[in-house]
């Protein structure tokens, strides 16, 4: 079975780039944007959900994103309850009920057209 990362559990302590500590459920879009602005290596990119399909294993989903200005097509296979942070909205997953059940993390339904926070490397050549 695929394990889910522990940091999505409600109450998990997250350290922002400026050192500030916040609970995972309290994070805002601005926290990611400001942390990326400080980072010398990472920058925020917007990844738009283009398709959501069933994955190879039960509960798995394949999400196709269009990433950044170049609209690079990227597919990721994750468990349906894996949360993504949607700009201006917050945590969202394909199975928000399961996410809430597993992590006690309030979660919206991830839909085609949602714009998720993602990272890329700065100055990649």
């Amino acid at each position: 079975p695929v394990s889910l990362p522990p940091f999505f559990m409600r109450g998990s302590i997250i350290q922002l780039a400026d050192g500030e500590l916040k609970r995972v459920e309290d994070l805002k879009t601005e926290d990611f944007i400001q942390s990326a602005e400080i980072s010398s290596e990472l920058k925020i990119d917007s990844s738009t959900v283009e398709r959501i399909d069933s994955g190879q294993t039960p509960n798995a989903v394949v999400i196709q994103f269009s990433v950044g200005e170049l609209k690079a097509q990227v597919c990721v296979e994750v468990l349906g309850e894996y949360p993504f942070f949607v700009f201006g909205q917050g945590w969202s997953s394909c199975c928000p009920d399961r996410t809430t059940q597993l992590f006690e993390l309030s979660c919206a339904k991830l839909c085609v057209g949602d714009v998720c926070v993602s990272l890329t490397l700065r100055g990649m050549r």
Partner: peptide, 25 residues
């Protein structure tokens, strides 16, 4: 004796998927 439990602190970027490198010029 009760040993103090340390609370794990996770870096902000671990929550964000790393999707694709931006290919700038």
């Amino acid at each position: 004796n009760v040993e103090p439990r340390s609370v794990p602190v996770f870096p902000w970027h671990s929550l964000v998927p790393f999707l694709a490198p931006t290919q700038s010029d």
